[in-house]
Design a protein around this nucleic acid. Structure first.
Lengths: 238, 238
DNA sequence: ACAGATTGACGCCGATGAGGCGAAAAGCGC
DNA sequence: GCGCTTTTCGCCTCATCGGCGTCAATCTGT
């Protein structure tokens, strides 16, 4: 199966008693820009799937924790550091990579709307671009499946966890926050009810600043640094 | 780091251009027996941690899907097949195994209370035993942390998903089901409210049989095979 | 056989919370 | 000042949840 499982030249210096799969990390980076939920993709340069778009990712270093590898790959592609990062799922179907057995640990990341992302549409060697979630190109490997699952999980997480703030700048208005929710969940919410509920959750705090623009200026809020990330779970079932 | 990264004898026939971590699966098998939530552990025979208790697990075959590997390990230790199995998390701290880099994909399994589990307390080579969740022995590797997380996830899943049935025989009474919930969640529930809510969820169906015992015989129920596993989520947040 | 104990099953009631909606407040551009 | 937009406050209603009383069916001990 593996092309190199029997070769023994000096380009294959790492030998083991039993065969080992390769381990990679892939990052699904979400952001909300231009009023749409977008995902970061990179264009592959080498076979397999040369020219196709794929999730940013790469091999895990031998001394590198998994999450550190994901953070590194994300930083290499976008320059973004300190973004929200969470392990999503590990994919290991034997045939998911034509080069051999590759097991990938998928992470999803939330990039604030105001984070400067470099190489945006750049003509570097490895081109990276944001794609709206509903206008994705053909994807390499099983990355389409991975993104579909990441989107399900993002929506789910948004509904029972205070994680939407990770997609906004540090300060934001209630309307901006609501728009993020509406974009991701794909439904419109009532302004007054949204406001009431999010204030009762006691996870954001008002600031003394306002955002001026059209209409009445809106108060700016900030995510409470000490707020528990998990909204205390009401029992859903039974 | 790896002892064998430079050795080149005939016991190390699998060679690669870059070093690769080993990949294993570990299974956290839960069951409810003797009125307690229990976890399956095996006693290690070899170093490291020889003699210590650990989660059942082992290496992933090169052509084997991850979940298949978990199911195989579980079947080898217990003989149980077809149990509920779900990927939990992937642990990959560089120092979690003193032998070198070992990345493990953890699965948690729910074993029905009536499933015959072989090697229970047997004196086989690899001894396997159930341990009550609140009376665990010292554990090898990072397995204590893994079990703690699995327990959190089990409780969480029980509250928003219809998964408790996986711990019961195919037919059960409402009181038996309630008992499972009480044991896992660690709190007592009101009989009448539990009954009302679980019937409204419309995921179990009454049978024409009754379980006789102390007091009035209780109607037996069965998990609806076509019921959606995920209880349709009410929004929790905001 | 009968009384009391034990467990299962049905239904009401008040409190709580969520969604729907009206209306006032505060700036902006003309 | 006057319309327009957007924010913000507050009320009303309905569904749901938890708490509890009560009856029904069977077992057990005498």
């Amino acid at each position: 199966m593996l092309l190199n499982s029997d070769t023994r030249d000096k380009t294959m210096p790492y030998c083991y008693e039993y065969p080992r799969p390769a381990v990679t990390v892939d990052v699904i980076a979400f952001t909300v820009r231009e009023g749409r939920l977008q995902v970061l993709l990179v264009q592959r340069e080498r076979p397999p799937f040369a020219g196709a778009w794929a999730l940013p990712g790469g091999f895990v270093g031998m001394e590198e924790p998994l999450e550190a590898a994901a953070a590194r790959e994300l930083a290499e592609e976008t320059g973004v550091e300190g973004a929200y990062l969470e392990q999503l799922y590990t994919y290991g179907a034997p045939d998911r990579d034509p080069r051999g057995r590759v097991i990938t640990v998928a992470y999803f990341a939330l990039i604030p709307a105001d984070a400067p992302v470099r190489a945006e549409g750049g003509d570097d060697a490895a081109q990276a671009r944001w794609f709206p979630i509903n206008a994705l190109p053909d994807l390499a490997f099983d990355h389409a499946e991975i993104i579909a699952y990441a989107l399900r999980r993002l929506r789910y997480k948004l509904e029972y966890t205070a994680v939407g703030f990770q997609l906004l700048p540090e300060t934001f208005t209630l309307s901006e926050l609501q728009r993020v929710y509406e974009i991701i969940l794909g439904e419109s919410l009532d302004k007054r009810n949204f406001r009431r509920r999010i204030l009762k959750a006691d996870i954001i705090e008002p600031l003394d600043a306002f955002r001026t623009g059209e209409g009445r200026p809106a108060r700016l809020y900030r995510y409470k640094p000490d707020a528990v990330a998990e909204v205390k779970a009401r029992r859903l079932f039974p």
